[in-house]
Design a protein around this nucleic acid. Sequence first.
DNA 1: CGGCTCGGTAAGTCGTAGCTTACGGTTCGT
DNA 2: ACGAACCGTAAGCTACGACTTACCGAGCCG
Lengths: 107, 107
Amino acid sequence: MATYQEPDGWEILGDPSRRAIVECLAVGPRAVGELADELPISRPAVSQHLRLLKDAGLVEDEAAGTRRVYRLNPAGVAALRDQLDMFWRRTLQGFQEIVGEEDEEKS
Amino acid sequence: MATYQEPDGWEILGDPSRRAIVECLAVGPRAVGELADELPISRPAVSQHLRLLKDAGLVEDEAAGTRRVYRLNPAGVAALRDQLDMFWRRTLQGFQEIVGEEDEEKS
DNA sequence: CGGCTCGGTAAGTCGTAGCTTACGGTTCGT
DNA sequence: ACGAACCGTAAGCTACGACTTACCGAGCCG
């Protein structure tokens, strides 16, 4: 029942387009139009995704004349990675017990 | 452009309900009804999620009388974890370069 | 100053994932 | 053999997220 509720960094990377954007920015900083050229979606769509990524602290933006250059935010990326790792820890933790006692029925 | 397309183990865990199910099963094997009791969704909903999880190789089912007990599949979980790790590797790899050059420019 | 590029925002459409209710099939107990 | 418990599947609805087009502001250049 426990009504799961978390900040959910998962839904940020749940979208393929956003993952693609992150991977692009991992290669190097890009402007919005440049990202749109490398992706199969329109420029406004990229803009919307960037907004979410920025709110999540994953990317930073910097005005460069009429353009706006986006880059990954190290701290944000690390934080999100840790958050996802927490899930795996919780999962794999109780998981080892199962594997170990698989033959044995009760403890 | 590059029309990203992958088997996407991400969408499997993208749903909160499925993550909750996985965490429950990490604690120990459960029947479908038991899972439904611990989650804020109906039993059929759980059943549908279990179907996806099973297709993804994350869980295994075993008939026990009129009940059906589900448990995590070690190999499947490990495989998916590796798959997600690949994303982080690709991201953090080109990422270090950026971080490295960033210090030189600014401080 | 005009015209141009670049980018954010609004409004609206569309697809689809997730949920529920309803039904049918198995299996166990009595 | 009848009823109950347990589960999967079908059908349908609803909500939300992703995308597009259209519009407007902001900065550069002639």
